[in-house]
C-alpha cells in the first residue's frame, strides 16, 4: 500500500491539505470533481494574504458540490465540508474533533502554518489521517508530513514535476519517505471516484 497508488478512502477519517503558491488553480481542479457524498472532511491550510479570502470561498463554492467554508473556533469537524484555516490564525484540532484557533507566533514565517495543523491532526487522527502536500514555493508542511507518517497516517505529495511551484512537495519528499507521489490529475481521479473500489 505504501508505494502503490492504491488506497481505500474509507480506511480514513480525515484529510489535511497544505498548499501555497499555485493553490487557487490546484484546489479548484481537485475540489470541483469531488462528489457530494465524499465521506471525509477535508481541512486545508493555504498560505494566503490576510485580507483576501472571501473571493476564494465564493469561487470554490460555485464549483464544488461540498460545502467550502472557513473553520470556526469550537466547530465540530464533519464530513461533507471543506474547511480552510482563517487567514492570520493557526488552525488546531482538539481531541474531541473540534477546531481551535490561535494567533501564536508565525511558524515557517507563516500563519496559518501547515506544520501546525498537520501535527495536531496527526496526534488526533493517528493512522486514519491522509496528509497531502500540493504546489507551493516554501517548505512549510514537510515537518508536518513527517509527523503524519510517524503516527501511521498516509502521506501524499503532488509530483513536483506536475506542480506549478515544485518547492513545497519537493521539500516534503526530501524530508519524508512519502507514501504516494502522483499528479494532480491522478489524485483527482482517486478522490472523485472513491466508491469505485
Amino acid at each position: 500500500m505504501k508505494t502503490k497508488n492504491n488506497f481505500n478512502i474509507s480506511d480514513f477519517k480525515a484529510i489535511v491539505i497544505g498548499v501555497s503558491a499555485g493553490g487557487f488553480e490546484a484546489l479548484t481542479k481537485l475540489f470541483s470533481t469531488l462528489p457530494k457524498d465524499f465521506p471525509l472532511p477535508i481541512i486545508v491550510v493555504q498560505h494566503i494574504h490576510k485580507y483576501q479570502s472571501g473571493y476564494l470561498f465564493e469561487h470554490l463554492n460555485k464549483h464544488c458540490a461540498l460545502k467550502v467554508k472557513e473553520a470556526d473556533e469550537k466547530e465540530t469537524i464533519k464530513p461533507g465540508n471543506i474547511y480552510f484555516a482563517p487567514p492570520n490564525y493557526h488552525l488546531l484540532i482538539e481531541e474531541d474533533k473540534t477546531f481551535s484557533l490561535s494567533v501564536d507566533e508565525k511558524v515557517n514565517y507563516s500563519r496559518p502554518s501547515i506544520d501546525v495543523l498537520f501535527k495536531c491532526a496527526a496526534e488526533v487522527y493517528k493512522n486514519q489521517l491522509i496528509g497531502i502536500i500540493l504546489t507551493g514555493a516554501n517548505d512549510d508542511g514537510a515537518e508536518g508530513m513527517r509527523i503524519i507518517k510517524e503516527n501511521g497516517g498516509l502521506t501524499i505529495a503532488q509530483d513536483p514535476r506536475d506542480a506549478e511551484f515544485p518547492v513545497m512537495p519537493q521539500s516534503a519528499i526530501d524530508k519524508v519517505e512519502i507514501g504516494i507521489i502522483l499528479t494532480l490529475e491522478n489524485l483527482t481521479f482517486h478522490f472523485s471516484g472513491w466508491h469505485r473500489k
Binding site: 488546531l92 482538539e94 481531541e95 481551535s100 495536531c120
Partner: peptide
C-alpha cells in the same frame, strides 16, 4: 484553556 494550543506550548 483549549487543550490543543496549550499542548503546543
Amino acid at each position: 484553556y483549549a487543550k490543543a494550543s496549550i499542548k503546543r506550548r
